[in-house]
Amino acid sequence: MEPIVKYDDVHKSFGDTHVLKGINLDIYPSEKIAIIGPSGSGKTTIIRLLMTLEEPTDGDIIVAGENLWKMEVGGKKKRANEKHLRSVRKDIGMVFQHFNLFPHKTILDNCVMPLVKVKKYKKKEAEEEARRMLDRVGLGDKYDAYPANLSGGQKQRVAMARALVMKPKIMLFDEVTSALDPELVGEVLEVIRDLAEHDEMAMVLVTHEMDFALEIADRVLFLDDGVIAESGTAEEVINQSENPRLQDFLKRFRNSSS
């Protein structure tokens, strides 16, 4: 099977800080990947590059055969323009740590607007689709509420519905429970678990919810100092790896969570 996303020796620096130091990664259709690692190791940066929120300093990211950040013009490679980026990123969706709902729109409109504007749905079809998705994340009674009137967990579920209506082939989750009160984390994880079990899309989770990540992920990546230091099934990475940095990270994590 062909990978749907391919990172080829991807580097990213912010000023003098070299955050990613050569990422090589294949993501296959419907694969569920969890990225773990110490803070500052570049986990979030990996998926922000794919969402086109940051531009790599070096290397290529190929999405469904298309080079994300470079386009060919008359046989020459050029930096991607807005049009090229839009055509390649249409299959990618993202859920953010801080929800980023549109505060001036109702939660229904949050989901309807991108369907109408980007996917050119008719308003009525878009509303049906948005309702279906909001029902799925358990917010069927809140269509007309504004984001400000929702709890953090509800906001995050709306954000997921909004990303889902666009039918991405790859969905990125950027520490989606980190900004939530502890008692609201469960309801959000429940939705992600449901997606992981029933949806065909590939999912990449950057998370601190270690147990959850290990439970749902087909593959776990341990990111350390800008490179993928370990990669394998949860079982392989947790129990069989002898990487001392990983052992250290897991030990610190276990200590802090127990």
Binding site: L53, F96, M166
Partner: peptide, 27 residues
């Protein structure tokens, strides 16, 4: 306007103009 608003709009694949018109300007 919070940068997250622009990022969410990019993630939904809105065009530059749509981002301004639908998300940033109304706020």
């Amino acid at each position: 306007i919070n940068k997250g608003q622009t990022e969410a709009s990019i993630a939904l694949n809105l065009s530059r103009f749509q981002r301004m018109r639908q998300v940033i300007l109304p706020q």
